[in-house]
Amino acid sequence: MKDFTDPELCAAIAAAESPAWSVRAAAGLRLAAADRIESVARVLGGLLLDAEDTGVTSDTAAALLARRDLAGLRIVLAARAVASDEGTADQLTAELDCDPRWATGQDGDELITQLRTLASDGDPEVRNEALLRLSRLR
């Protein structure tokens, strides 16, 4: 997925507005795999904050975290920081807490390094969420 002229990307963006939770969840999976994820970050944020079904939140967050990069983690932290619906906030917390990288030492170190980087992010909400996660590790 290259840019907004990519038909698959455009279809996934449109699917993010579907009334069907399964279609929105599938859109989250496709968008999370985008090469230039920053270009669809707003749509992904909306899927993470889906107030109608935490399945959409869960699938999208898991796909973003599976990228194992700063961009995916940043989008999940940004959504968690502003989640006002308790179910959605709890689901995002669960996805962050259950990231498979915590299961092994090396991968956990990778995640901690990314959190430390995001602890100085320009977005105060991302920064605060990263700092909160790091404080729980101590």
Score class of each variant (00 low, 15 high):
C10D: 11
E86D: 14
L9Y: 02
A51D: 13
D97A: 12
G46V: 11
E52H: 15
L131T: 14
W21Y: 15
I13S: 05
L31W: 00
V76M: 04
L134N: 09
A78V: 07
E86G: 12
R67P: 02
T88E: 06
A78M: 13
L131S: 15
S84T: 07
L132P: 04
A130E: 06
L118I: 10
I37P: 05
I112R: 14
R30C: 03
R116G: 15
L118T: 07
D69G: 08
L44R: 01
A25T: 01
G28Y: 00
L73S: 03
A103F: 14
G28W: 00
A130N: 09
R80T: 03
T117G: 08
A81S: 08
A61K: 04
L49V: 07
S18L: 04
P100F: 04
A119K: 09
L70N: 11
A71L: 11
S39C: 10
A51Q: 12
S18I: 03
L44V: 01
A32E: 03
A27T: 01
L29H: 03
V40G: 01
E38N: 15
R74C: 06
T104Y: 14
R68H: 10
R101K: 07
L111H: 11
R30I: 02
L115Q: 07
G46C: 07
D3N: 09
W21D: 10
I75R: 02
G72M: 05
V126Y: 08
T57A: 05
T117A: 10
F4W: 12
V76R: 03
L29R: 07
A11F: 09
F4I: 06
D109H: 13
G108C: 14
L118W: 05
N128Y: 06
A61I: 01
L77P: 02
A66D: 13
R127G: 06
G55M: 04
A27I: 01
A79G: 10
A89S: 10
T88G: 07
A27D: 00
D99W: 07
R133E: 11
V23P: 07
D99E: 09
G45K: 02
Q114N: 10
D90N: 14
M1N: 11
T54K: 08
A12F: 02
A41K: 03
W102A: 09
T54G: 05
W102C: 09
E38H: 15
P100D: 05
E38A: 15
A66C: 06
T93K: 04
L73E: 06
W102D: 06
E38S: 15
R133M: 09
G87Y: 15
V43Y: 00
A27F: 01
E125F: 13
V23I: 11
V23T: 14
T54L: 12
R127M: 07
